[in-house]
Amino acid sequence: MHSFDNIKNQRILLSFLNWGKGHLSRCIDVCRKLERQGNTLLIACEEEDFAVLSSYVTPLKYLPFPGYPFTFQGTGDFAGDLWKSRKLLSDFMKWEQTEVEQLITQHQVTLVISDHRYGFFSQTVPSVFITHQVNLAIKWWQQPAQWLHRKWMKRFSSIWIMDEEKHPLAGKLSRKGNLKNAAYIGHFSRFEKKETKKTIKLGVCNGPDPYNRQLLERLMGNKELDAIISSIPGNDPRIVHPATWKETDELFCSAKTIHSYCGYSTLMDLKQLGCKGELIPTPGQTEQEYLYRLHTSFDFSESIR
């Protein structure tokens, strides 16, 4: 099994899930730490995401690679939307695995790292799967999804659980149980710890489309917010349309309260920033509904370490 801290002097091919921007956000810190350990990083993703990543971490090599073909109707029926797309997603993952093998040959890759992309693995070099969900937050009648999740994770040499065993943010979702090739790697956030005075109430429009648009409407209705970060146009003078993510980092660091969906990457950011969250689950997303119930108060103004 590959330990995160022992990954050194490797040529690493890395990609991340395109379900919102949370996986991209947490991979900034993953890449930053791997680069500091002397590794060469080749990032397979879409151009827009690479522009974000490369503004925080250099040097990186860009390999154009499409995201998963997700289509969400915005009705809160995530399971139904995924079921309708099952053939398209299955075909994509088969193509993805073949493409990974070609990239390995072309670029002399020695290690593959996938942040929750099931088809992004190799049969010729070691492959690592990053997740905070060893156990999916699903209904009893959705247990076949958990079986399939475990089956797909077994394709990988190692599983890195993005959580802490003694102080888990993900609760039962990150319990590794009898997985022998799994290890906890801690929490990751793009933000650096700073001694900054926290003065503003910040809205953050996150989540996959069209749920981010639904959230923006809700945030604009909150008159207490001082600023709203969104890539979506809106007729509210408080909306900030950043050209780069880095432009908004000072806003995050100055926030005493962040209002957004309660994605797992958001929880890790709150912990790193040491602030409070007024968070809601994305409608119908069972993982976030579980995290919402688990953390009755999203108060990270005092460290939980």
Rank of each mutant, 00 (worst) to 15 (best):
M1W: 10
M1G: 14
F4G: 07
D5E: 15
N6S: 15
N6G: 15
K8Y: 11
Q10P: 06
L13E: 07
L17N: 02
N18V: 11
K21P: 00
K21M: 11
S25V: 11
S25D: 11
V30W: 03
C31I: 03
K33W: 04
L34S: 02
E35Y: 09
L41Y: 03
A44N: 07
V52A: 00
S54I: 01
S55D: 09
S55H: 08
P59R: 02
P59E: 08
L60P: 04
P66V: 01
P66D: 03
Y68V: 14
F70D: 02
G76V: 05
F78C: 01
D81T: 03
D81S: 06
D81P: 00
K84V: 04
S85Y: 04
M93W: 09
E99F: 10
E101W: 04
L103K: 09
I104K: 11
Q106Y: 02
V109H: 05
L111W: 08
V112N: 02
D115S: 07
Y118C: 07
G119K: 03
F121N: 07
F121E: 10
Q123M: 09
S127W: 01
V128Y: 01
F129K: 11
T131S: 10
T131K: 00
H132F: 03
Q133C: 09
W141Y: 14
Q146G: 12
W147C: 12
L148Q: 14
H149A: 13
H149N: 15
R150F: 02
K151R: 15
M153Y: 00
F156R: 04
S158A: 14
W160Q: 11
H167N: 14
G171D: 03
L173C: 09
F188H: 04
S189K: 00
F191G: 08
K193N: 09
E195S: 11
E195D: 13
L202T: 03
L202A: 01
L202D: 00
G203R: 10
C205N: 12
N206E: 14
Y211Q: 08
N212Y: 05
R213M: 15
R213P: 11
L216E: 08
R218L: 11
G221P: 04
A227Q: 14
I229H: 01
S230C: 11
P233T: 13
P233S: 06
D236T: 08
R238F: 05
H241M: 13
T244H: 13
T244C: 13
W245L: 14
W245D: 15
W245E: 15
D249N: 07
S254Y: 03
K256E: 12
K256I: 10
K256L: 08
H259T: 12
S260F: 10
Y261V: 06
Y264I: 05
T266C: 09
D269C: 02
K271D: 14
Q272V: 10
L273A: 07
G277W: 00
G277F: 02
G277S: 00
T282A: 04
T282C: 06
P283M: 05
G284Y: 09
E287S: 05
L291W: 05
R293P: 05
L294T: 04
T296I: 14
F298P: 07
S303V: 12
